[in-house]
Design a protein around this nucleic acid. Structure first.
Lengths: 109, 109
DNA sequence: CTCAGGTATTCGGTGTTGCTAGGTACCAGT
DNA sequence: ACTGGTACCTAGCAACACCGAATACCTGAG
């Protein structure tokens, strides 16, 4: 999708994944597939797994192993209390950014 | 403002600066000051200068030295044709992201 | 039975980016 | 002479997304 997207995803991808997990528990492969459907066509598989490891280490999610019928066991992640707070903080930061950018976008016409 | 902002600025800060330059030519010190006024309280000075060097090397801006009454000469940057196209591409990428995130934000309530 | 192919996770190395923490230089007022 | 505001630059660091490859499990085609 272009280099701009790659850089823009830094910081927001984490929020996106946490937002997904806030709706329902999910595992890496599933999240990757969903993101691709949503148009994030070039999100690398490895990226999501690495991100999930990070949020786990930050204690923002709980994990449980669930056997799969079609492959190795899934690692199903769910957002915990701390993760919810972190996600709310993410939305605040995001809102701040969008407000400034919207102003700039309007002003630039 | 927090670590989330730092990561989120990666990729967007460049667009922000280019958007500013699309309205009027400006120099580094001025841009830094303006950003701080807008609430980007902890944007480091060095960050902006490094960013300006990068966009100059990418040929997105034109530069001219202008003597200052109060210090060393200013390097005034202005967006050129290529920079405008790049900025439009930035807005397209940004719009894509905001749409997805807005959906997620709504869905998460 | 073997082998391709979908499912599912992991890992090492790379490039880009913003931050830290300085430094240089010019000038005005005390 | 010295402080402080203006204005720019740099080297080293940490975080993050990407790339490419490897591993592991299972099913169905040949």
């Amino acid at each position: 999708m272009g280099k701009q997207m790659t850089e823009m995803l830094k910081g927001t991808l984490e929020g996106i994944v946490l937002a997904i997990l806030s709706m329902r528990p999910a595992y890496g492969y599933e999240i990757t597939a969903w993101l691709r459907e949503q148009g994030f066509s070039d999100i690398a598989e490895g990226t999501i797994y690495a991100l999930l490891v990070r949020v786990e280490q930050k204690r923002l999610v709980d994990v449980r192993k669930v056997p799969s019928e079609k492959g190795p066991p899934r690692k199903v992640y769910s957002l915990n209390k701390q993760g919810q707070e972190y996600l709310e903080e993410f939305w605040r930061t995001w809102s701040f950014l969008t407000e400034r950018l919207e102003q700039l976008h309007e002003g630039g016409k």
